[in-house]
Simulated scan of single mutants.
Amino acid sequence: MSNAEDYTIKIDKAHNDPSLTFNHTCFRVKDPQKSVSFYENNFGMKLMGKKDFPDMKFSLYFLSFPKSQWNKNSQGEDDVFSAEGILELTHNWGTESQADLKMNNGNEEPHRGFGHICFSYADVEKACAELEEKGVTFKKKMSDGRQKDIAFVLDPDGYWIEIIQYIKGGESVPRTDVGTKFNHTMIRVKDINKTLAFYQNVLGMKILRKSDHPNAKFTLYFLGYPVKEGENSSSKEGVLEVTHNWGTENDPDFHYHNGNTEPQGYGHICVSCKDAAALCDEIETKYGDKLSWAPKFNQGKLKNIAFLKDPDGYSIEIVPHGLTV
Rank of each mutant, 00 (worst) to 15 (best):
S2Y: 14
S2E: 13
A4T: 09
Y7D: 02
I9R: 13
I9K: 14
I11E: 05
K13F: 10
N16G: 11
S19H: 01
F22H: 14
T25D: 05
C26K: 12
F27W: 14
R28F: 06
P32V: 04
S37A: 15
S37C: 10
N41G: 05
L47F: 01
L47Y: 07
K51A: 12
Y61N: 12
L63H: 03
P66K: 02
N71S: 13
E77V: 01
F81Y: 12
E84L: 02
W93M: 01
W93F: 10
K102Y: 04
M103E: 09
G106I: 00
E108H: 13
R112D: 13
G115M: 05
S120I: 07
C128M: 04
E132N: 11
F138Q: 01
F138D: 00
F138S: 01
S143N: 07
R146D: 09
D149R: 12
G158F: 05
G158T: 07
K168Y: 10
T176H: 12
D177G: 05
V178E: 14
V178K: 08
F182C: 04
N183H: 09
I187C: 01
I187G: 00
I187M: 12
V189A: 04
K194H: 06
A197E: 15
A197T: 11
Y199V: 04
Y199I: 03
M205W: 10
M205F: 08
L208N: 11
R209F: 15
K210W: 07
H213K: 13
A216C: 06
A216P: 00
T219M: 05
T219S: 11
L220I: 14
Y221S: 07
Y225K: 04
G238E: 06
G238S: 06
L240D: 03
L240V: 06
L240C: 11
E241S: 05
V242Q: 03
H244M: 07
G247I: 01
T248M: 14
P252V: 09
Q264W: 13
A276E: 01
A276L: 04
L279T: 00
L279E: 02
L279N: 00
L279Y: 08
I283P: 01
K286S: 08
K290G: 08
W293V: 03
K296N: 07
F297T: 00
G300H: 07
G300D: 12
K301S: 15
N304K: 14
F307C: 05
L308D: 05
D310K: 04
P311K: 00
D312F: 10
G313Y: 13
S315E: 09
E317W: 00
L323Q: 11
